[in-house]
């Protein structure tokens, strides 16, 4: 039986997570179908059709799916998913929102946030904020799985899958989209960036995050923050890296004024190289950093920007 992969998008662009999501799917079986559910999302379907290893792209283009409401998407994926062995989505706030509904309606368990595929029915996932790693085996007929995409590699965009329209409208009268305040940024997304530079409580206020921007521009980096910086109101919540924020694994992670609380480490410790800049040489972040620089970030950051 084939595998159904739910595509993450904003009705115009395919998100980078999907390339890694498909990599996870190819480790479970060979026949992959993607589902693009949205409104006026034909461009996304065309982009999705290029992902290597995919044989078919199903497109449910309907106003009911414009805002990815969990009630509507949940019904759609449940109805389509009955004929598949696995249903996969990225462990983003979209996937986390509707996938448990699908699992419940299909009367199967969900396996959340997998970081490794051992076989078609056995998966590895972090528990206790990554302080323990569990291996689980599912005997359910349909495996409903969300994937931590930062743990997988991107597939090539070299394929040419068949695109097939689906007319299946699942509307509901109990929930409605009111509005969204989305952060606009020219920088790469946190979860897809090759370099991430994050600020913590040591930044002292939101204005000082400008010190990170020049460096981010030179390195093509995304800007993140610790929970302490978000809770203090320096920056918005969508910049939070950590157990309850975004999980990132870039090639280079630069932690500035971040002490290294365990909840923050859970969100970035799989980065390839970690740099820590902190005035407290006892800060726990130095225990996991490849390169540590002890000093005043207000002197170091301008100097770093100038030397890049």
């Amino acid at each position: 039986m084939a595998i159904l992969v739910y595509v993450e998008h904003d009705n115009a662009h395919l998100k980078a997570e999907n390339l890694k999501l498909v990599d996870a799917a190819t480790k479970m079986g060979s026949e992959l179908h993607l589902l693009v559910a949205g409104y006026q999302c034909q461009d996304v379907a065309q982009q999705a059709a290029t992902l290597a290893g995919v044989s078919k792209v199903l497109v449910a283009d309907d106003a009911a799916y414009e805002h990815q409401l969990a009630e509507n998407i949940g019904e759609l994926v449940t109805e389509l998913g009955r004929d598949y062995s696995h249903i996969l989505a990225a462990a983003t706030t979209t996937g986390k929102n509707f996938m448990p509904r699908v699992a419940a309606l299909l009367d199967v368990a969900q396996i959340s946030d997998i970081i490794k595929v051992e076989s078609a029915d056995t998966f590895v996932r972090p528990i206790y904020a990554g302080n323990a790693i569990a291996t689980v085996q599912s005997e359910d007929a349909i495996k409903v799985i969300t994937v931590r995409t930062s743990a997988f590699d991107a597939v090539e965009q070299s394929g040419s899958a068949v695109v097939e329209a689906i007319s299946l409208s699942k509307e509901n009268s109990l929930s409605a989209f009111v509005g969204a305040e989305l952060t606009k940024s020219e920088r790469p997304e946190l979860t897809a960036a090759r370099v991430v530079i994050s600020g913590g409580r040591g930044m002292q206020n939101g204005d000082n995050f400008k010190l990170l921007e020049g460096i981010a521009d030179k390195l093509g980096a995304a800007i993140g923050a610790s929970r302490a910086a978000v809770d203090a109101g320096f920056v918005p919540n969508d910049m939070q890296v950590g157990q309850t924020g975004k999980i990132v694994a870039p090639e280079l992670y630069i932690a500035v004024g971040i002490s290294g609380a365990i909840q923050h480490l859970a969100g970035m410790k799989d980065s390839k190289f970690i740099v820590a800049i902190n005035k407290d040489e006892e800060a726990p972040i130095f225990q996991i950093a490849d390169y540590g620089l002890v000093g005043d970030l207000f002197q170091i950051l301008p100097e770093l920007e100038a030397s890049l």
Binding site: A132, S138, D290
Partner: peptide
């Protein structure tokens, strides 16, 4: 229908070096 096969400690990341300056 999900069986827990095993629980392990995560791989420990080794700290690196301190550098003197930028």
């Amino acid at each position: 229908k999900v069986k827990l096969l095993k629980v392990e400690a995560p791989a420990q990341r080794q700290g690196g070096v301190k550098v003197a300056d930028v």
